[in-house]
């Protein structure tokens, strides 16, 4: 890049800083608000500097919950969300890599129709098929369970397509060499295809984990018990209160906590992701 001199460079930097501020300010406010006294926030006298209630607010949030609307500790909500997001991410990857393997490497009747059916489901998001899905889950007695939270969201046309595209770039000679080396279909999948898919799986895991973590409508519908509540549903319930002040420090602390696992996943997986990209060679 050409180095700009003097004034023009300051303008460019100023614009970048404004952009960063716009993105970061709400996050900063959330963190600050989560360390203040609720009365101050309610009076509209919130300081823009961190207050002194950090430990008590976070302790209350994680282990006790709000005193009003939801009595569920946020620690438990996080556990629920984590289990759901992990089940969805891992389940989606497992199911879609297996179905992509079947579609790419096996010749069976109606292979292409099946592929197109999977492809078409891309156009049917959860919201569209929510009533029949709810009915099935209810009939299977999976309401208020981890299975009910995760199972209906596990099938993934997107991930299947991604793995299909990747498998099609793997040279046929690798499969043929495996066949001559005495590796059957399962061996080839396990010994060759899975290790080669590592980077794709890492990238997908990041996307799918965040997708699962941010689910709102589905958990809201099928969980009724407080102890099965996920964090995204919990935040919403905390804000809507009747006959009482919204406990903003606790709400903000919950928001900050809800942010942490996705951030952690992105940071942790990014390293593997980048290293994989550099290392992998087909």
């Amino acid at each position: 890049m050409v180095e700009e001199e003097g004034f023009r460079r300051y303008v460019a930097h100023a614009i970048l800083w404004i952009g960063i501020a716009i993105v970061a300010f709400p996050v900063y406010i959330a963190i600050v608000a989560s360390t203040q006294d609720n009365a101050l926030i309610a009076n509209g006298q919130m300081s823009l500097l961190p207050g002194g209630h950090f430990f008590e607010v976070y302790y209350q949030t994680i282990f006790v919950g709000t005193s009003g609307s939801t009595r569920e500790p946020v620690g438990n909500m996080m556990l629920n969300s984590l289990v759901m997001a992990l089940l969805i991410a891992v389940g989606k990857i497992a199911i879609s890599i297996i179905s992509a393997y079947a579609i790419v490497y096996f010749r069976f009747p109606f292979r292409m129709p099946i592929f197109w059916i999977i492809f078409i489901t891309l156009m049917l998001p959860v919201e569209v098929r929510i009533y029949p899905t709810y009915k099935i889950v209810a009939d299977l007695h999976m309401l208020d369970s981890y299975a009910g939270l995760a199972l209906p969201l596990i099938a993934s046309a997107t991930a299947t397509l991604l793995f299909r595209q990747f498998f099609m770039t793997v040279p046929d000679e690798l499969l043929e060499a495996s066949r001559i080396d005495g590796a059957g279909p399962l061996r080839f999948f396990w010994d060759t295809l899975l290790p080669l898919s590592r980077t794709n799986m890492a990238a997908l895991f990041v996307i799918l984990f965040i997708l699962g973590w941010n689910q709102y409508l589905w958990p809201l519908l099928i969980t009724t018990r407080d102890d099965m509540q996920t964090i995204q549903v919990g935040i919403r319930k905390m804000i809507t209160t009747t006959d009482a002040l919204t406990e903003w420090p606790v709400v903000m602390a919950t928001a900050v906590l809800a942010m942490l696992p996705p951030v952690f996943v992105v940071v942790a997986m990014q390293k593997l992701f980048v290293r994989g990209l550099v290392e992998t060679e087909k």
């Binding site: 000679e173 690798l174 043929e176 060499a177 001559i180 992998t280």
Partner: peptide, 14 residues
Amino acid sequence: DIAMVFQNYALYPH
């Protein structure tokens, strides 16, 4: 009971 050498070698990259 044969062994084959491929044009692009087909070594297992990992």
